[in-house]
């Protein structure tokens, strides 16, 4: 497998707080890589660093063989790094459909943008035939619920035809039905899309991920397959006292 993205020695501090500390990360083409860890472990900062929303104090990021450390967020997005945000970021005054079409501006030719957007809205459950009632596409994004905005932002990230998709807690705040839809959507993504998933919902993580990295205080504590991670003593220590639901009873449940 070829390496799509490699981060070496990434450091990022906020004042005296070290959010990400000499972190190395390698993503293979087509891999589903999950990052878990307690709150404040630096997961979102890691995504911001990879997407170019903030610059590392030290370290180097290469994407598809190219050094992108000095590139801004919009350049990286045009190179094929798509992302969602922890708090869904959409354009509230534009219609749901326009949101997806504008997000696909650089990835699709004008004539195709609309068809791509309609299809994506259908796939995330905001189309006329999905969970959402008809007409959501024409409604301003301001009228969407939190969960629907999250779904919308995933459609927007996909509209950019990313080679690497960075998802920041895509399941947070979703209803059970929306969660099922999300799981199916991510499971059906072609392997031409590499996924880096930051998520607290471990059922989703273990259902999708090939590799799980556990982050604590800005450093990877352990990395391995889901089975290795559930068995890891180091991971138990990180989560000592407050293990997220599902981490250690997964084996028991089978």
């Amino acid at each position: 497998m070829t390496t799509l993205l490699a981060a070496e020695g990434l450091c990022r501090r906020y004042g005296s707080l070290v959010a990400v500390d000499a972190l190395d990360l390698r993503l293979d083409e087509g891999e589903r890589h999950a990052v878990i860890g307690p709150n404040g472990a630096g997961k979102t900062t890691l995504l911001d660093l990879l997407a170019g929303a903030c610059r590392p104090d030290r370290g180097r990021i290469t994407f598809a063989g190219r050094d992108i450390t000095g590139l801004g967020a919009s350049r990286r997005a045009r190179l094929g790094i798509g992302r969602t945000h922890q708090r869904p970021a959409v354009w509230p005054s534009l219609t749901t459909l326009d949101n997806v079409m504008l997000a696909g501006w650089y990835a699709h030719r004008r004539a195709r943008r609309r068809a791509v957007a309609v299809d994506l809205l259908e796939r995330v459950g905001l189309g006329s035939g999905g969970l959402g009632s008809g007409g959501l596409a024409a409604a301003p994004a301001a009228s969407l619920s939190h969960g629907q905005r999250r779904q919308l932002e995933i459609a927007m990230a996909l509209a950019g035809a990313p080679r690497l998709l960075l998802l920041d807690e895509p399941a947070a705040g979703l209803s059970a039905a929306e969660l099922d839809l999300l799981r199916d959507l991510l499971a059906e993504l072609p392997r031409t899309v590499t996924v880096l998933l930051v998520e607290h919902r471990l059922d989703l993580v273990f259902a999708l991920a090939d590799t799980v990295t556990v982050l604590s205080e800005g450093r990877p504590v352990d990395s391995g397959t889901p089975a290795e991670i559930t068995a890891s003593q180091a991971v138990r220590r990180v989560y000592a006292g407050a293990p997220p639901a599902g981490l250690f009873d997964l084996e028991a449940a089978g």
Binding site: S74, G82, A89, W91, P92, L102, A103, G104, E153, M156
Partner: peptide
């Protein structure tokens, strides 16, 4: 679309950049 792009800048600049704008 130019108008929609400007409204996008006003609504959420982060998202604009994250979509390559």
């Amino acid at each position: 679309p130019a108008g929609a792009l400007l409204r996008g800048c006003r609504d959420d600049e982060r998202r604009m950049r994250a979509s390559g704008h």
